[in-house]
Design a protein around this nucleic acid. Structure first.
Lengths: 342, 342
DNA sequence: TAACTTTCTGAAAGCCTTTTCGGTTCACCG
DNA sequence: CGGTGAACCGAAAAGGCTTTCAGAAAGTTA
């Protein structure tokens, strides 16, 4: 029988041990260690040394029990696999980790039953707040208003406007992308993008169209919705070149699509960026820096989304409630695949 | 002044509330809810209903304080960014999440100071154990033997053999990869791989060489160490074809390298897989399924590494200590880029 | 009816820390 | 030398839960 009490593993020291070793009461020890002013300097020193000797770490459980705040938050993601969750998670972890907050990570695998389960478990652990990270920008069901702790939604906004959601501004991103291509002197711009079931795809297309309209231009053909894959990029580029051989720029809905587009352009003997400039979306480094030339792409600043969500949650824990959907700007990262017309 | 006590947010119910509502003592309520046998069925029912009504969730802090076990573990990663940490983290989260264990996520950013800081914070929170996830397979400094809780190292083994480490078997992976190419009838196999500073690169090369030796063969040329990038794949393939034009298979140290290799092969008019079979490493889906043809690759089963680490930690918490480095097998995922010689 | 089980219930201790508040000590002043 | 205030210290409560143990209630047997 394996016992849980491993005799070789010493129990961590308690405040009691420290107090005894220093020859003071528990209360004094606590005050000494927490910088309270009711302690003589000499006594404080003795206590601190005792704590050092026992490598005492105050038990956060007890502290949390007493304070009513645990200094923990739950990070509820719907798919760790997805590459969008990770940077957000990093940003949040970063914003919290700097302070004295620890993060519980839960992956619901896109299953709402499991999500419910995790929420309950987190509430049982008395987290001070919750960040819900989605894997796409389409609105998702709210966790509800009755929760005992504040909640902030990141990337995927809540469908309840009373909740606070932090998302990247994909419409504006579409505008910015086209803006860059226009600044390069391109006027015959096509848009090849992914699954039209994704709000992100539709919003980017909308932004692109709006920016062109502002310049008195239109897309070359309709936006070509399809899949978020290199294969779709290749297939639709072939079609595009047949139908609109005079295109001078392609804005792609993802870096994967852009890779496919560039491959076919090269095969057809077109030069990137001279003949056709190509732009991707997501700024996924493995794709942007593997291509020839390196791929200009729109970065959604996801880490910042995560950080903003964490800060908003921090504020909400402090009582400063916000609500609605807050859209953060994206940014264009210029590399070799776009250049001014010569 | 924003106050922390938000009057609109109801305090969660305590066992006391439940007991009062059910008209029993706290003790009885506790026993009723925890399935202890000292309670009449009718009383138990009343308590359960009361708990339901108040949507009572026992405070895990208080429970943990009492039990000496918190039901939490720390997951210490050195770089969330890196794509190797994530699947491991998923596997671990999976193995734990199924039970009643919650996971604290900490990212040390490859900084050992920050790592120390996180370890202390986690110990202060009285985690029951720690999983340390590395970003490369080279051994890393142990956290030490004096820790109050068990530790399991995943992917990056500890340099102290007294610790338990779970890693993928890269030597064997090299053997398996070459085994597959040999099974395809390939005999003139080249190896293009990444930074020789990485143990993974050296081990895979070693395994490949060993498998060839077993078959009475040798690599075509020396292993070509370089960088883990498409660019290196392209550059070294050009060189390879100049020096060894009769090569009939290329084993690559990563999927990125493989993509570069395939691009140059295609440009030189060589057919994949007919003329030259190409194999990658890591089975990174965005790369393997974007290429033409889809890329055969070695998967390190990282999720399983994570799961195994979690299970080992679970065992260690229960007192079943293991130690040493345990290497888990990888697997070859066959796609279109490798095929038998016709 | 007395004595004895059996079954259920509740008071209280304990986990570890922080904080309040009353008590002790001591220097200093009138 | 009694009194005052400051400086320091410790007892105790609180926070929510589990568990032990003693006691109450109900049922059984002689």
């Amino acid at each position: 029988m394996t016992q849980t009490a491993d005799p070789s593993r010493p129990q961590p020291a308690t405040l009691n041990d420290v107090a005894r070793l220093a020859g003071v009461s528990i209360a004094t020890a606590s005050k000494a260690l927490n910088g309270r002013s009711q302690v003589r300097a000499e006594t404080r020193q003795r206590v601190i040394e005792a704590a050092e000797r026992l490598s005492f770490r105050p038990n956060q459980l007890a502290r949390g029990l007493l304070a009513g705040r645990t200094g923990t938050v739950g990070l509820l993601t719907s798919d760790l696999e997805g590459r969008f969750s990770i940077p957000i998670l990093m940003g949040a972890e970063d914003a919290f980790g700097a302070g004295e907050v620890a993060v519980f990570l839960c992956d619901a695998r896109g299953d709402s039953i499991r999500e419910q389960h995790h929420v309950r478990a987190l509430l049982g652990r008395r987290v001070d707040g919750l960040i819900v990270v989605g894997s796409r920008t389409d609105p998702r069901p709210s966790l509800g208003r009755e929760l005992a702790v504040p909640v902030v939604y990141a990337y995927a906004p809540s469908d309840d406007p009373a909740d606070l959601s932090i998302v990247p501004d994909n419409v504006d991103a579409g505008r910015m992308a086209v803006g860059h291509l226009l600044a390069c002197g391109r006027t015959r711009i096509a848009h090849i993008t992914g699954d039209p079931g994704y709000l992100a795809a539709r919003e980017r297309a909308e932004g692109a169209r709006a920016a062109l309209a502002d310049a008195g231009l239109r897309l070359v053909g309709e936006p070509r919705f399809g899949a978020w894959s290199e294969g779709w990029g290749r297939a639709s580029t072939a079609l595009l070149l047949d139908q609109q051989p005079d295109v001078d720029a392609v804005l792609c809905g993802s870096d994967q699509i852009a890779r496919g587009v560039m491959d076919v352009l090269r095969e057809r003997g077109l030069r990137v960026p001279e003949d056709v400039s190509v732009m991707g979306f997501d700024n996924w480094q493995v794709l942007t820096s593997g291509s020839r030339p390196h791929l200009t792409s729109v970065d959604m600043n996801l880490e910042q989304v995560g950080r903003a969500a964490a800060q908003a949650l921090f504020g909400a824990i402090g009582g400063a409630t916000r609500s609605g959907v807050e859209a953060l700007p994206c940014r264009v990262v210029i590399r070799g695949s776009t250049a001014p017309l010569s």
